[in-house]
């Protein structure tokens, strides 16, 4: 799968941009948190597209963001 770039995103309508980012995020999150992947992806899609692109390029940043999201999610569900 080729990397998603800002210029690729810019060619798509805003709604589709989130979709493209969501597909990438979901497939990275799923192996870590299968049961929460959809919700974590939904949370991360609230972040600015440019920041999500940075996360997709930086596995360590993404992982810490995922853990942050899981913490928030668990607190929210508690």
């Amino acid at each position: 799968q080729e990397p998603l770039t800002a210029s690729m995103l810019a060619k798509a309508p805003p709604q589709e941009q989130k979709q493209m980012l969501g597909e990438r995020l979901y497939h990275l999150i799923y192996p870590l948190h299968p049961s929460l992947a959809g919700k974590i992806t939904g949370m991360l899609l609230e972040i600015d597209n440019s920041e999500v692109l940075l996360l997709l390029e930086s596995p360590a940043s993404l992982r810490s963001k995922i853990e942050e999201a899981v913490t928030v999610l668990q607190a929210h569900q508690a």
């Binding site: 989130k18 597909e23 979901y26 959809g38 939904g42 949370m43 899609l45 609230e46």
Partner: peptide, 22 residues
């Protein structure tokens, strides 16, 4: 939207509606 349904859940292959419904 209601706080109980937050966060919106992403499903691969399903068009993302996200926060547009709020």
């Amino acid at each position: 939207g209601s706080s109980i349904s937050w966060p919106p859940e992403f499903h691969p292959g399903v068009p993302w509606k996200g926060l547009q419904n709020i």
